[in-house]
C-alpha cells in the first residue's frame, strides 16, 4: 500500500505523515507541494520522495493521496486525483463553497475512488465512549449541548479569506458539527451566530459563537474561536458537554495531559498522553482501500459540516437565524 501527500499547506500533514511512517504494510511514497521549497525540505526531513508536480505524484505507483492543501485548493486536487484513479483522504473543511463540495462528491463517486473526510475527532476514545453511552441509551434523549473548539491563531493560508473560505469559524466549526451529527444521528436545522475579529490583526474573523437548533429537538452553542494566547500550554481544546434526560457527559479531550511546571520558558505546559486520533483516522483510510469498502466519513459529512459554517457567516451578516434544509 503506497500513499502520497498533496501539499503541506495544512499543518495536519505532518501528523498524517507520521502515521504513514508508523503503519505496517504502508509506504509513505512521496509528496508534491505547490511550494517547492517547503516540499523538498519536508521530503528530506521525513525521508520520502519529492515529486516536482502534483501530476507527477499522481502518475507514480500509488494507491491513494492525502490532500492537505489550502481549503480552496481541495476541489482542484480532488478532481486531479480522482481522474488519476487515486483514493482520497481530504483535510477539513471539505471546501470553501457548497458547490465545490458537491462537485467533489460527484467526481469521486463517478471515478469510483474512495473519498474520506479527515474528521479525526471521531477517533478520540473519549468521544467514542460518549457515542457508546448514547447508543446504549445511557444518556437518554439529548436535550442540549455546549461545545468549544478553541485554538491559537494558525497563520498561513488560514488567515487568507480566499484560500481558507473564512477564518476561525470555518476552521473550527466543522469538527464539533461533525461529531454531533455522527454521535446523535441528527442534522442542524437553524444557525445563529455572532462573529468578529477581536484577537489578532488579520484579514479573517478570529472568534464567534454559534447557537444551533438540531432536528432531534436539542439546541447547542459552539465556540470556534482562535482565542488561545500564542504561549498557551497546549494547542487549544476540544470540549463537548451533552445534557441528556438521564445523564450529563463532558468530553474534554486535552485533559489527558500532565501539567509540566518548570523554571524555563515556557514554564507551564501540558504534556498530552492521550491516544493519537490521527492514527485511527489514517489507519481507517488505508483499511478501506485494502478491504475495498466505503469510508464511514463521507463527502456528504464534509458538505453538511461546511454548510453550518457558511450559514453562521450568513447569520452574522444579516443578524438573523438562518434555516437549513435537511
Amino acid at each position: 500500500m503506497r500513499i502520497g501527500i498533496m501539499s503541506f499547506a495544512h499543518l495536519h500533514a505532518y501528523a498524517y505523515a507520521d502515521v504513514l511512517n508508523q503503519l505496517a504494510g504502508v509506504e509513505f511514497a512521496g509528496i508534491a507541494d505547490e511550494d517547492a521549497e517547503r516540499g523538498k525540505a519536508v521530503a528530506s526531513q521525513l525521508g520520502t520522495r519529492y515529486f516536482n508536480s502534483f501530476e507527477e505524484l499522481l502518475k507514480a505507483d500509488i494507491d491513494g493521496v492525502i490532500i492537505t492543501a489550502a481549503n480552496a485548493d481541495h476541489r482542484r486536487l480532488t478532481e486531479m486525483a480522482a481522474a488519476a484513479g487515486k483514493h482520497i483522504l481530504c483535510e477539513k473543511p471539505i471546501a470553501t463553497t457548497l458547490e465545490d463540495g458537491l462537485a467533489m462528491e460527484k467526481v469521486t463517486r463517478e471515478a469510483g475512488v474512495k473519498f474520506q473526510m479527515a474528521f479525526p475527532c471521531r477517533y478520540v476514545p473519549a468521544v467514542q465512549r460518549l457515542k457508546a453511552q448514547y447508543d446504549d441509551g445511557l444518556l437518554g434523549r439529548v436535550v442540549l449541548l455546549r461545545g468549544t473548539n478553541h485554538g491559537k491563531m494558525p497563520g498561513g493560508f488560514f488567515i487568507d479569506p480566499e484560500a481558507a473560505g473564512g477564518g476561525a469559524v470555518v476552521d473550527h466549526t466543522v469538527h464539533l458539527v461533525d461529531l454531533v451529527r455522527w454521535i446523535f444521528q441528527t442534522e442542524i436545522k437553524e444557525v445563529y451566530a455572532e462573529i468578529d475579529r477581536r484577537f489578532h490583526d488579520i484579514p479573517t474573523d478570529d472568534c464567534g459563537l454559534l447557537t444551533l437548533e438540531l432536528t432531534n429537538g436539542a439546541f447547542m452553542t459552539l465556540d470556534p474561536s482562535w482565542s488561545r494566547p500564542d504561549d498557551f500550554y497546549t494547542w487549544g481544546d476540544l470540549y463537548l458537554k451533552v445534557v441528556g434526560t438521564n445523564m450529563v457527559t463532558e468530553v474534554d479531550m486535552m485533559r489527558q495531559s500532565l501539567e509540566r511546571i518548570g523554571s524555563q520558558d515556557p514554564n507551564y505546559q501540558w504534556e498530552f498522553w492521550g491516544s493519537n486520533s490521527d492514527y485511527g483516522l489514517v489507519k481507517e483510510f488505508v483499511a478501506c482501500i485494502q478491504e475495498d469498502r466505503q469510508p464511514t466519513i463521507t463527502a456528504q459529512d464534509g458538505i453538511k459540516a461546511l454548510e453550518v459554517a457558511l450559514a453562521a457567516y450568513e447569520s452574522a451578516k444579516t443578524g438573523k437565524p438562518v434555516k437549513l434544509d435537511n
Binding site: 442540549l144 455546549r146 455572532e194 468578529d196 477581536r198 459563537l209 447557537t211 447547542m220 445534557v243
Partner: peptide
C-alpha cells in the same frame, strides 16, 4: 438549563 449568546456594545461576544 439555559445557554445565552450576548453581544456587548464594545464588541465582546459572550456565552
Amino acid at each position: 438549563h439555559v445557554l445565552v449568546s450576548l453581544r456587548f456594545a464594545n464588541g465582546v461576544i459572550g456565552n
